[in-house]
Amino acid sequence: MNTTLKLAVSPHIHSGRSTAGIMRDVLIALLPATAAGTILFGWRALLVVSLCTACCVGFELLFNLITKQDLTVGDLSAAVTGVLLGLNLPANVPLWQCVVGSLFAIIVVKCLFGGIGCNLVNPAITARVFMLVAFGSMATQAFPTMVDAVSGATPLGGSVTDFSLTDLFLGLRGGAIGETCALALLIGFVYLLVRRVITWHVPVTFVGTVYILSFFFEGMDFDHALAMILSGGLLLGAIFMATDYVTSPSTAAGKIIFGLGAGLITVLIRYFGVYPEGVSFAILLMNILTPYIDAWTKHKVFGVGGKKA
């Protein structure tokens, strides 16, 4: 037989998992939230999400071309950033702000740091924080008035009861496009768990910490504490952004520390900060701590150190 055999070192087979496949799963998991946002806030919501996605992919493509690098848009990570950014904005956000936010997320936060895998902080979260700060009161102004009642006033106690838990669970409240419908977000969460894209550690410890601390801040009221975790951007952040591989710890222990820290910061900002919502800041701050958490929570190597067997 006349053939050229390939020489290579083992392993000779691969699991078939790929970055693009993982990102595709994240996009699929975000579909319910996008659909819910469109139903709740109308077609403009879909326009915002689509525009952010198109801008993020476009800016990354442009950056690849200008810097003469391999095209990386095929890995779908820019699309994920775009969808997440869109879902983090209110439906009536000015469209030019979507473009600027996308530019910031992709170029400043991601590409300038070296592209996928090299960014220190989550691009979508950082762009959301940037837009909140740069465009002044954009985030709260643009929200329907209801949202102030929820995420602004809840720490004062009592006003969470303005909404029934069912309304909160279905997303019948003001807020960013993708953050209100807990049901849709949980469907996405289950999908990501089943597909083994993420583990339970970050979302459960993050949301759990907020729940437990809110329970005490809300005067030991279970319903109020539950309302607190269904309010603001907690579920969207905890499920989809705090679990970003690049900017969260790798090991289970690290993920638990990350979730605990993010939950604590969220509650502190919600109750004591000047901003009504603390999820974005909490994730951003924990992103910055991730290298340290990773260093502290390395796996112990089998047969190295410790007591002799």
């Binding site: 970055t19 990386t72 890995d75 591989y245 900017t247 090991t251 047969g303």
Partner: peptide
């Protein structure tokens, strides 16, 4: 082969816990 996305799969599947 593409860029590392820090997913942690390598260290989380290494039988000996290497990174």
């Amino acid at each position: 082969t593409t860029a590392c996305i820090r997913c942690g799969s390598c260290t989380n599947t290494c039988p000996f816990g290497l990174a």
